[in-house]
Amino acid sequence: MSAASELDRLISIMVRLRDPETGCPWDKVQTHATIAPFAIEEAYEVMDAIARNDDQALPDELGDLLLQVVYQARIGEEEGRFDFATIAKTIADKMVRRHPHVFGDAALDPDLWERNKAAERASKSEYGALAGIAPALPALIRAEKIGKRASRVGFDWGTPEEVIDKIGEELEEVRAELPEASRDRLEDEIGDVLFTVANLARKLGLDPEACLRRGNDKFTRRFQAMEHNLARTGKSLADQKLETMEALWQQVKRELAAEQPS
């Protein structure tokens, strides 16, 4: 088995699936736009397998992600615009161009990557420090990228403590909107809070998306532990008063903390 032969096989399978006469009814009617969301979903499943150190699931999830590239390439080829070879050549050329210290005789230049990216954006008539940040990125990831780009030109907080102070200011602005409860204004102000929190993570050298995933996982473990504890006595959370649920929450926090390795 070789990578090249298996890739050729996968591309051939996609040709069969997209055949107008004998292909799969679902596959052959898809477009760039209709299958685009699946690429995002598959990328997150790859991230999940990596986070779980699941070496059995990872090849499968990476295969699902590769399929999305092959799928898009086939649609492009059918429309006479590009094919898989075009995609592979484009990224290969880009990697060689961005690594002259590896593929040429240039000395290592830590700033070369960003200069090359800036030049590539300029060639596409994308100018400015924030050019090229895709609007379709998940909002938390986009916030971190925007903050990082702004920081490169000196528009940034000096210390994490200053960002924390700014979060406090933004929360007060949310509080000020509460009496009126304008949906539009609340959305705007809460957006400011989330943007600033994302940049606090960046200032601390953390990935805000990873931080939120960790928070989601922690809440899920605690909530499910509450449900499990009640189910053993034939009860459910929906039947409990808020005070009881808070007491149960504190209990499972202690129990789960005790299970953590010291």
Rank of each mutant, 00 (worst) to 15 (best):
S5N: 07
L7S: 05
D8C: 06
I11F: 14
L17T: 10
E21S: 14
T22F: 03
C24G: 09
W26E: 15
K28H: 11
V29F: 07
P37F: 03
F38D: 04
I40Q: 12
I40K: 12
I40V: 09
E41R: 04
Y44G: 13
M47Y: 12
M47V: 08
I50R: 12
A51P: 06
L58K: 07
L58D: 03
L62V: 03
G63W: 08
L65R: 05
Q68C: 12
Q68D: 10
V69T: 06
E79S: 13
E79D: 08
R81M: 13
R81Q: 14
F82A: 02
D83S: 08
F84P: 02
I91S: 09
D93I: 07
K94F: 04
M95F: 11
M95A: 14
M95E: 00
R98G: 04
H99N: 15
G104L: 13
D105S: 13
A106K: 12
L108W: 09
P110K: 06
R115P: 08
N116L: 11
S125R: 10
P135R: 08
L137E: 00
L140Q: 02
R142W: 12
A143Y: 02
I146C: 02
K148D: 00
A150W: 02
S151E: 10
V153D: 06
G154F: 10
G158M: 05
V163K: 15
I164L: 15
D165R: 15
I167R: 15
G168Q: 15
L171R: 07
E172H: 13
E172T: 10
E177V: 04
E177A: 11
L178R: 10
L178N: 11
P179A: 03
S182A: 11
R183Q: 12
D184M: 15
E189P: 02
E189R: 09
D192F: 02
D192N: 01
L194H: 10
A198P: 10
A201C: 07
A201W: 01
L206R: 05
P208W: 01
A210E: 03
A210D: 07
C211H: 03
R213W: 00
R213L: 04
A225L: 03
A225F: 01
M226D: 00
N229H: 09
G234E: 08
K235Q: 13
K235Y: 13
S236G: 08
L237Q: 10
A238R: 14
M245V: 15
Q251G: 05
K253D: 14
A258M: 14
E259S: 08
Q260G: 06
P261S: 05
P261T: 07
S262W: 04
S262C: 05
S262T: 08
